Amino acid sequence: MKRALTVLLLSLPVLCPAQGRPNPPCDRWPTNIAENSLKDAGMLGNIDYTKTQAVQLSSEKIGKSEDGEQLWREVYHITFHEKGGKKIKVIAVNDAGEFECSMSAVEVFVVSNHLLPKVESDRMFKQIE
């Protein structure tokens, strides 16, 4: 009985796949728009592009566009590293279609401070950092 329950529990992720976009994430679109927005606001200088990170936090179906294409709302945590060592962190939110990443404007939220939990071993926070 225990064995059957274990097999059932282990097979649940296979039976209930996540609802992401069918194509790879569109991390370059919100990253480029966030970079331009930060530069226009005078908040970002000389970037070290090799250290720029974009982590997708969320992707959720939100309906269909006017031409019937499925739309997803995507949320990214983006970290820019300046060559001087300064880090600028933003949250970028935009809508993406099945074949087009730029289905809406990108909203950029500057993260001024990130309060880490007392338990520093939390995987989610380490992945974002």
Rank of each mutant, 00 (worst) to 15 (best):
M1R: 13
K2M: 09
R3P: 09
A4S: 02
L5T: 06
T6H: 04
S11A: 08
L12E: 02
P13T: 08
L15M: 11
L15N: 09
P17A: 00
P17Y: 04
A18H: 12
A18K: 14
A18C: 13
A18D: 11
P22F: 04
N23D: 13
N23L: 12
N23W: 15
P24Q: 06
P30S: 06
T31N: 01
N32V: 07
I33T: 15
A34T: 06
E35S: 06
N36W: 14
A41S: 11
A41N: 00
G42A: 05
M43C: 03
G45R: 07
G45F: 08
G45M: 04
N46K: 04
N46C: 00
K51H: 12
K51G: 10
Q53L: 09
Q56F: 04
Q56G: 12
Q56C: 02
L57I: 05
S59G: 13
S59C: 15
K61T: 14
K61N: 12
K61D: 10
I62F: 08
K64P: 11
S65Q: 03
S65V: 05
D67F: 11
E69Q: 09
Q70L: 15
Q70H: 15
L71S: 11
L71I: 08
L71P: 04
W72T: 06
W72H: 15
W72G: 07
V75E: 14
Y76T: 11
Y76H: 12
H77N: 14
I78K: 14
F80E: 04
H81R: 13
H81N: 15
E82T: 01
E82G: 09
K83A: 12
G84F: 03
G84E: 06
G84H: 02
I88P: 00
V90A: 07
A92G: 09
A92F: 10
A92Y: 05
V93M: 02
V93I: 12
N94R: 04
N94Y: 10
D95T: 06
G97D: 01
E98M: 14
F99H: 12
C101E: 08
C101D: 11
S102W: 07
S102N: 13
S104Y: 02
S104E: 02
A105W: 00
E107H: 01
E107N: 09
E107C: 00
V108Q: 01
F109V: 00
V110M: 00
V111K: 09
V111T: 08
S112N: 13
N113L: 01
N113T: 14
H114C: 01
L115W: 11
L115G: 04
L115R: 06
L116V: 05
L116N: 03
K118N: 14
K118Y: 09
V119G: 13
E120C: 04
E120K: 15
E120H: 12
R123E: 09
R123M: 12
R123F: 11
R123S: 12
M124V: 15
M124L: 15
I128F: 06
I128G: 05
E129M: 03
E129K: 07
